[in-house]
Design a protein around this nucleic acid. Structure first.
Length: 854
RNA sequence: GCCUCUGUGGCGGAAUUGGUAGACGCGACGGAUUCAAAAUCCGUUUCCUUCGGGAGUGCCGGUUCGAGUCCGGCCAGAGGUACCA
């Protein structure tokens, strides 16, 4: 009779053994010998207070890689820390009156206790929290270095302003154009803010994407599109008649389609264009229009999805190519000031947005690109702009040219007329880092009336956040603190004012992995991160900022990372989702408030039927969250880890189900029963050299090979499937007389080691049971005997006209003629081809045979 | 709106470079064991079928001896959209 494996006993026991042995501490470069290094990192968590299953999935994946690399002989660095600044701490402070620091550090303690139960192979000796003055002080030093190197500057930029709460709102806090607390329509305000010159690096950030071979293609594409390099024409349209004072030389526009200049029917200015602002001073209606545009907030999504609105300024500009032709100048809400020059020319026939606008305001639509094969006399544009290929027509000197040739010709002409020149434009904007909030890294500068902006002297760093702040009213507590901001100017000694803005929390996360890696010298050894694992939601912002930051740090001499790439390998994992439930009265129910009875879902408390809703991302509001602690208490950490790695491919979402967790728990016992039933003498048993033994040994070695490949390719669900199949085979072998205990022992010894990255506690117990040496967590990965991976015979499917009709067994290296003959001789195949002519036989070695008949 | 991705049985999903669609797991059903149950073990499980076979990977079309995979066009969902992290 086997005794059950009890995770509640085994897991704490092994966790203590690992901690006592300090086995996950990274070995310093000088002690590492020949071992290659592997820096494995998961995106560090925001200390919200509780780990959720999504975290468990993220860290389980990183732990598989980390433990696997360790077993393969790598010197592994696998650290953990806390992305500890941010808005939720301030929101909690406003709601509960707790200090953001207290709230944050309590959350860190609670989450660290949860981490400990997961059995992760983390090196906690390098733990950091970004809200620790040690960390943000070092960050302030980096900021000042950037400032010194001209990578930081100040300019005016817009923020969402809540006119009732008198506070700046994050985009997230603007809901349908209204402040989330006050409900008041948001306004826009211009503030002087700090910016990082990320656009100076646009070309490098774009070009170097090519070198990131171990990044997902989609992330590289997203970043390339985000940077958005486009070659085009910057030109000006002089005014027809007197120019307004604000734009004496005309209106500068940027276009990527100079080939369609003959189709131009209007000029559109951004509501924030200097000319628009100047015109609004003398026009109440334009002022009102601008205010209307500001209502939607500052997010690109809101601006782009808002209904297209225009305002006719009454001004007209002259067309550069057509004598006597003039174009009206409009202000349009879809033109962004941040891109190009903040002004465009509209060619409705070949741009959908321009067309929608032109139809709404009854502006000319003149097609100038004729689709291939189209008839010039008949071609017309209705409600759909034509953006495809074709040749230029109705365009004087451009007639008959291809789009590309016409672009060059138009640019050349404009250059000749001294109206503009070819330019490269980026969608990427400089990174605004100023935040009007308390819980962030103070920007280490002082504003002096005499000396201007003065950096805080390095000896005075860190500029610490004051603790005595209040959150009883909205706004930045640093701004209204009685003393904090009043300091003498470091240069002249006169009264001066500290900067009260703090840095964007994306700055904190742009270099934490550098900090983990130690001082400049040690970081040069560890960097870049070999495998980074995190959510795909960070594909652009965080991952682009970190790439910029490392280049900037290298260029300032702060780190030694010539390529500038922080993450050599990247994996983006999917979310954990769960069914949602609603009670009869329509309230959200959590999974532990319902139970399944047959086909129906019942609310336990009331006994009433509960409605099962769609599977969605776990969220507090929908109450469809699952607490990892609860899972660990019930099933153990190994089950939680195993389940989140099991079913779905890591890059896709996985749905948490109770039955799936129960299945994983059963599997744990099944594995344990394999080890429990192996006789003690198996360790020293002799080989039988029987066919049965060879067959099992083939399975063992093939399984390890498949698992290795799956881990290398980040297909953990495939590794899990392989382990399932393998254990099924090992279970069968218990009752096969032709299989000796030596082969079973080999299999189990390999299995224990293969399980270690996934279920380390169970693996330790199993390893111990078969008399393994020391801790399996530090045991080397099994060695594969390549000879055992090759089969003598393989099964080949036979198709007739692409339909499978049978299969034959052949040697892997059988000549094609023999395979063909054997296939044609097959009984079922004969029946299919009887009375027909065999036109062709396709033999794909080791794959398939297809017989084509007529 | 724009960028990116995803879509395969009752469910999660598997399927080298285009080569046996449904591995593996969950659920369900049947059986063994048991006084009975739990646990465990074994088996069946894409759909239709006249049992020969036929259909089938979101929808429509194309390329190919052969398409889940490649191409064109749709539809639906997800992530991002620069102050959520």
């Amino acid at each position: 009779m086997t005794r059950r494996y009890d995770p509640s006993v085994a897991e704490p026991r092994w966790q203590s053994a690992w901690t006592e042995g300090d086995i996950f501490r990274a070995v310093s470069p000088e002690d590492a010998g020949d071992a290659p290094k592997a820096y494995v990192l998961e995106m560090f968590p925001y200390p919200s207070g509780r780990l959720h299953i999504g975290h468990v999935r993220n860290y389980a994946m990183g732990d598989v890689v980390s433990r696997y690399r360790r077993a393969k002989g790598y010197n592994v660095l696998h650290p953990m820390g806390w992305d500890a600044f941010g808005m939720p701490a301030e929101n909690a402070a406003m709601k509960n009156g707790t200090h953001p620091g207290t709230w944050t550090y309590e959350n860190i303690a609670a989450m660290k206790a949860q981490f400990a139960k997961l059995g992760l192979s983390l090196d906690w000796s390098r733990e950091l929290a970004t809200c620790d003055p040690d960390y943000y002080g070092a960050q302030q030093a980096v900021f000042l270095k950037f400032l010194e190197h001209g990578l930081v500057y100040r300019k005016s930029a817009k923020v969402n302003w809540d006119p009732v709460d008198h506070t700046v709102l994050a985009n997230e806090q603007v809901i349908d154009g209204k402040g989330w607390r006050s409900g008041a329509p948001v306004e826009q305000r211009e503030l002087t803010q700090w910016f990082f010159r990320i656009t100076d690096y646009a070309d490098r950030l774009l070009d170097d994407l090519k070198t990131l071979e171990r990044w997902p293609e989609k992330v590289r594409t997203m970043q390339a599109n985000w940077i958005g390099r486009s070659e085009g024409l910057q030109m000006r349209f002089p005014f027809d008649g007197d120019a307004p004072e604000a734009a004496p030389d005309g209106i500068e526009i940027f276009t990527t389609r100079p080939d369609t200049l003959f189709g131009a029917s209007f000029i559109a200015l951004s509501p924030d264009h200097p000319l628009t602002i100047a015109l609004a001073e003398g026009s109440d209606t334009l002022t009102a229009f601008r205010a209307e545009c500001a209502r939607v907030g500052t997010s690109e999504e809101a601006i782009e999805t808002a209904e297209k609105q225009g305002f006719d300024t009454g001004l007209r500009v002259v067309h550069p190519f057509v004598a006597g032709k003039t174009l009206p100048v409009w202000v349009a809400n879809f033109v962004l000031m941040g891109y190009g020059t903040g002004a465009i020319f509209g060619c409705p026939a070949h741009d959908q947005r321009d067309l929608d606008f032109a139809r709404k305001y009854d502006l000319d639509v003149t097609p100038v690109v004729l689709p291939p094969e189209a008839d010039a006399a008949a071609f017309a544009v209705g409600t759909e702009a034509y953006t495809g290929p074709g040749s230029i027509y109705q365009s004087d000197f451009l007639d008959g040219l291809s789009i590309d040739d016409a672009k060059s010709a138009a640019v050349q002409k404009i250059v000749g007329q001294e109206l503009g020149e070819a330019t490269v434009n980026y969608r990427l904007r400089d990174w605004g880092v100023s935040r009007q909030r308390y819980w962030g890294c103070p920007i280490p500068v002082i504003h002096c009336e005499t000396c201007g902006v003065v950096p805080v002297p390095e000896a005075d760093l860190p500029v610490k956040l004051p603790d005595d702040v209040s959150f009883d009213r909205p706004g930045n507590p640093l701004e209204r603190h009685p003393t904090w901001k009043y300091v003498p100017c470091p240069v002249c000694g006169k009264d001066a004012i500290r900067e009260t803005d703090t840095l964007d929390t994306f700055v904190d996360s742009s270099w934490y992995f550098v900090r983990f890696a130690g001082d400049k010298e040690e970081a040069a050894y560890w960097l870049p991160v070999d495998q980074y694992v995190g959510g795909v939601e960070h594909a652009v912002l965080h991952l682009l900022y970190a790439r910029f930051f490392c280049r900037a740090m290298h260029d300032c001499g702060l780190i030694d990372l010539p390529g500038g790439e922080p993450f050599a390998g990247l994996f983006t994992q999917g979310m954990v989702t769960h069914e949602t439930y609603k009670s009869a009265s329509g309230d959200w129910l959590s999974p532990d408030e319902v139970e399944r009875r047959g086909e129906d879902m019942i609310e336990i408390k009331t006994g009433e039927a509960a409605a099962v809703g769609p599977v969605e991302k776990m969220s507090k509001s929908k109450r469809n969250t699952v607490d990892p602690d609860e899972i660990i208490r019930t099933f153990g950490a190994d089950v939680a880890r195993w389940f989140v790695l099991s079913d779905s491919p890591p890059e896709r979402d996985v749905e948490w189900t109770q039955s799936g967790a129960e299945g994983a728990a059963r599997f744990v016992q099944r594995i344990w029963s394999l080890f429990e039933t192996l006789p003690a003498e198996a360790k020293d048993a002799a080989w039988l050299n029987s066919d049965g033994e060879t067959a099992l040994r083939r399975t063992n070695h093939k399984a390890i090979s498949a698992i290795e490949k799956a881990i290398d390719e980040f297909r953990f669900n495939s590794a899990v499937a392989s382990i399932h199949e393998w254990t099924g085979r090992l279970k069968k072998a218990e009752n096969e007389e032709s299989v000796g205990v030596a082969a079973r022992h080999e299999g189990l010894s390999m299995l224990a080691r293969a399980l270690t990255p996934f279920m380390p506690h169970l693996a330790e117990t199993c390893w111990e049971a078969i008399g393994g040496d020391g801790l399996v967590s530090v045991a080397p990965w099994p060695t594969i005997d390549a000879a055992l991976l090759i089969d003598d015979q393989i099964t080949l499917p036979i198709q007739v006209n692409g339909k499978r009709r049978g299969e034959i067994a052949v040697a892997p290296d059988a000549p094609a003629e023999d395979v063909e003959a054997q296939a044609l001789a097959h009984e079922a195949v004969q029946a299919q081809i009887a009375g027909k002519t065999v036109k062709k036989v396709i033999v794909v070695p080791k794959r398939i045979v297809n017989i084509v008949v007529a």
